[in-house]
């Protein structure tokens, strides 16, 4: 995606969001150790600039950025894109439509996030809220949510109820796989990696940087 993008020039697709800067930071973490990035969501100004430079170079070969999964599935089935960042569910849907694609975990690891439910702290019916929490965490509900949405269930007991091969495809019980995912933490001024001698760039700065990358 970064070092070999030129080999697929004009056929590369990437996720359209400021948080994608973390993917570039993750690449630099491994390949440019002198930048001393330890957390892809904690970048000081110099580290952010390096990630932005990398993404600007990649952009020369990008055909389009994607944000909804219909768009990416379509681009891969027509051949407008041949390589790109993806969600597991997009690869699964494309394979279901007989598009020859494969999702791989890069040697650098990957970014990712957990979808979350929220309950209002001011809920008037707290008993119902607890009952609902019990329900949504139950294997049955988790299996339904995971299959409907195309993601690994939060409760691994759900894997007995999902369709055959589902949990394997989404690496739901693969701890070694999960260990390589750097989960989304919204960048803030206070460095998330514990550094106190510098200020980190916050999500607002990332948003502005993303606008500049797209130009």
């Amino acid at each position: 995606m970064f070092d070999d993008a030129s080999a697929y020039s004009g056929k590369v697709t990437s996720y359209d969001s400021p948080i994608y800067i973390a993917d570039a930071a993750l690449y630099l973490m491994k390949h440019q150790p002198d930048l001393k990035i330890t957390d892809p969501y904690a970048l000081d100004e110099g580290q952010l600039a390096a990630a932005v430079d990398l993404l600007k170079k990649q952009k020369e070969h990008v055909s389009e950025y994607w944000s909804d999964y219909l768009k990416e599935v379509q681009a891969f089935s027509t051949g407008d894109s041949v390589i790109g960042t993806t969600w597991e569910v997009i690869a699964q849907v494309a394979q279901g439509e007989n598009v020859p694609v494969e999702a791989v975990l890069p040697e650098e690891g990957s970014t990712g996030w957990s979808d979350t439910w929220m309950i209002s702290a001011d809920s008037q019916n707290s008993n119902c809220a607890y009952a609902w929490m019990d329900y949504i965490m139950s294997p049955k509900a988790q299996a339904a949510v995971a299959e409907y949405f195309g993601e690994a269930p939060a409760n691994t007991l759900a894997c007995d109820l999902t369709s055959k091969g589902f949990c394997d495809a989404y690496h739901a019980t693969d701890a070694a796989f999960a260990a390589q995912i750097h989960y989304w933490t919204t960048p803030i001024e206070q460095c998330l990696d514990g550094r106190t001698d510098v200020k980190c760039t916050d999500y607002g700065a990332w948003t502005q940087a993303w606008t500049e990358i797209k130009g």
Binding site: D16, V62, S63, E64, Y65, S67, K71, T211, K214, G215
Partner: peptide, 9 residues
């Protein structure tokens, strides 16, 4: 522009 605009914004 998000649907057909490629990398444009």
């Amino acid at each position: 522009v998000r649907i057909v605009g490629g990398t444009g914004q």
